[in-house]
Structure formats: C-alpha cells, structure tokens
Write a protein that binds this DNA or RNA. Structure first.
Lengths: 205, 205
DNA sequence: TGTACATCAGTGAACGCGCGTTCACTGATGTAC
DNA sequence: TGTACATCAGTGAACGCGCGTTCACTGATGTAC
C-alpha cells in the first residue's frame, strides 16, 4: 500500500480506508478531509480527483459498509436455512457482529448523518440490507397462525431496533455508560424473550 | 426574555436554551458556541462568564435533560403503581415521549458525545434516571418464579435498548430511513411481545 | 527499440471562513454611608 | 435622599488555527508511430 513515487496507485480506496480509520477513532465529527488526505500520504487537493468533496467521501465509506453489511446478513440468513427460526436468529446476531468488526463503517452508516437517499446506489444497497432482515421475518411469520400474525415488517423493525439499541448503548463506547452484561448475551437473551413472546419458542426459559 | 440594556438578566439559562435549539436543529456537530451566543443576543466572549467553554455548555444542557428525563420516568413509574406491570409499561412509553418532546435535550444527552462521567452531578442525575427503570424492572421480576427469573437489570437493559433503537431509527429523522409504523405503535407492540415472552402477559395477541 | 506526445494524478500555494478563546476595557447595577 | 464606590456582566478587537475548496502547474505513465 506504500505510495510509489508521484502516482499513488490506488488513492481512491486508500482515502476511503483512511476515512474509515479516522471516523472510527474520532467519530464522524472529528473526521476531516485534510487529515484523511494526510494519512493517505497526499495533499488535500488530491482528494478532489476522486471525490466531489468531504460528504462524498463519507458517503462512499458508508456505501461500502452497507455492501459488507448486506453480504453478512445474507450469509447469516443462508447459514440458518432451511430453518426459519435459525435464519432469523442468525441475522440478529450478524448485526451486532458487524458493528463490532467494522466500527468505522458502522459509524459512517448510522451516525455520520449521511442520508441513505444521498445517491441511488447508496439507497439501493441499504435496501438490500434491510431486505434480508425482512425476508427472514417473513419466513418466521409463516409459523404463526395467520389470524394472529403481525406484519413481518414489524418483527424486523423490533429486532432491528433492539439490535441497534444494544450496539449504541452497550457495545460501542457510549462514553461512561456500561452494561453489567456482555452485549452479545444481552442481545441473544433479548431476542430469545421476544421470540418466546411470539410463540415461536417454547415458553420455558 | 428580551435583554434589557447592557446586562442580560439571565444569560446563563438563555445560552443553554439557545444551545438546545441549535443542537436540535443542526445536530451536535452543527452546534457552535458563537452561534449560541449570537442567538442569545450576546458576544461570544460573554459565554465565558458562565461556562468554561463549549463542552461545558453542552454538558449543562445534557444535565438539564437528564433531570427532566428522570422526573418524567419517575412520574410515569408512580402513575402505574401499585401495578408493577403498569409501572413498567409506563416508563417504557415515557422514554419515547421524552425523546419526542425534548429533542434538543435528547441529542445533547445521547448523541453529543459528552461523557456521562464528565462531572459528578451529571453522573448522579444520569444514574437517577436509569435507576427508575431498574426499579420498575425489579418490581416486575417479582412476578416471575424465582428459579427462572433473569436479573432485573437485564430487563431494563432490553427495554432501554429497544426504546433507544426505535427512537434512533424510526422516530428522530434518521435521514432517509422510515418505518411503515408509527414509532409509538412499534414500541408498544415490541414491549408487549417482550412481556409476553417473559410470561407476564397472557400468551394471546 | 526508441522517440514524441497525450493523458491525467498529484502538487503547492493561496483563498476566505468561522471557529474557540484571551484580554484589557466599560458601563450598568446595587450597596454603604 | 443623594453621592461614592465596588462589583462584575458584557464588549469588541484580536489571535492563531485548521478547515474545505480552487487553481495553474508539473511530472510520471503509457501509447502511437
């Protein structure tokens, strides 16, 4: 990855990588285009050969994050098949795993203030990600008697909300706040209780 | 609240109010000390008569938020008594209600990056707030047979996480993202399923 | 294989800006006599 | 009631800073002949 002479080789991706590191370190606020350029061994002006500006760079980092995220969710979903229950649980776990493994991407996606509708590609891949979760919820909802079956989008929203909340409050360094439980256990048990509430798990603990 | 002549009257609180408005409008990133001063009708330098600096002003805004938050939670808890279930559900709803009614405070508390341990008073009032939720969870856990009773801090963490997730993802303008359901319904139904999972509500939907 | 040339990625200097913070000051207020 | 004075909240000018962005440029690369 060392720059070789005047031309960098793959500056575009090097800038995204630098941005991700900086966002992870200092939060979306602390990230500056100039610093990302410096970290990539390049003048700030060089950034404009590859991105329209600061926002554009963050959006690309977020886009790559959604790409990874969607792949991860999809893989988790597949790995649980053909059991609808296993698929659903796996996608729930994948959310937390993603947040832990790719904190820079996570922040760029969910805390940087970049709109998901900023570009068509971004919207597309974000929809792909949430689509996986919804599909998992649909599969699961077929095991509930139709007359008492809530809309599957509601499940996925519930699980998504709980996952997101666990990540924000207890996994990422929400400064000074801490849980007495590991976030994985918290999410696992929370989802367990929830599924029991839907009658999809035996009522015992 | 209009300033009367050279002296302002109650500049300290006016600055906090201005900060809250700006934080609500532009997010914690967009907030600047200078702009808050301007909005209060005063020179930026005047701020330093009342606060050590920018961070200190945000921390005070957050502190006032936690104060209101704790009061609200406490009131909700009391209003549900003597039913443990009603108390618990009311505190869950209070979380969302707070986020909607006091968005500036909410952002200062949870999205500004100010550590809850920044000052002793801040830590104290934050603990008071989460203490209410834990107390509600404790009361509820007594209705579960002891041998299959999870620690009450775990409930409160689950509910807190789901509430926070609903707020972040579906209630506040998480830009471009939207739920097909009103956040209140989402949270209400989510908590309902969860309590059913604990055996604290009848299993029917 | 060697030379001329087009392409274009990165340079470096410059810009205007608003920021947070400092400082010596000034003028309004309220109290003591 | 009137005057002298201490207090201190707010002024306004100044600072150094790093930011994002622009511009004319330069030098490395790779292709055509």
């Amino acid at each position: 990855m060392a720059k070789r002479g005047y031309h960098h080789g793959n500056l575009r991706q090097a800038l995204v990588d630098a941005a991700l590191e900086l966002i992870e370190e200092k939060g979306p606020t602390g990230f500056t285009l100039s610093e990302a350029a410096k970290q990539a061994g390049v003048t700030p002006a060089a950034v404009y050969r590859h991105f329209a500006g600061r926002e554009d760079l963050i959006a690309e980092a977020a886009r790559q994050g959604y790409e990874i995220f969607a792949d991860l969710m999809d893989y988790a979903y597949q790995s649980g098949q053909p059991s609808a229950l296993a698929s659903f649980e796996a996608t729930g776990r994948a959310y937390l795993a993603f947040a832990k493994k790719y904190p820079g991407h996570y922040v760029a996606m969910f805390e940087s203030g970049v709109s998901v509708n900023r570009t068509p590609e971004l919207a597309l891949v974000a929809n792909r990600a949430s689509g996986v979760l919804e599909r998992a919820a649909e599969g699961l909802s077929e095991h509930i008697p139709p007359e008492k079956r809530p809309p599957p989008q509601m499940f996925s929203a519930h699980i998504w909300a709980m996952s997101h909340g666990v990540v924000e409050l207890f996994a990422r360094g929400s400064p000074g706040r801490q849980s007495p439980f590991p976030p994985e256990d918290l999410l696992e048990s929370g989802i367990g209780v929830y599924l029991r509430g839907l009658g999809l798990l035996p009522p015992d603990g």
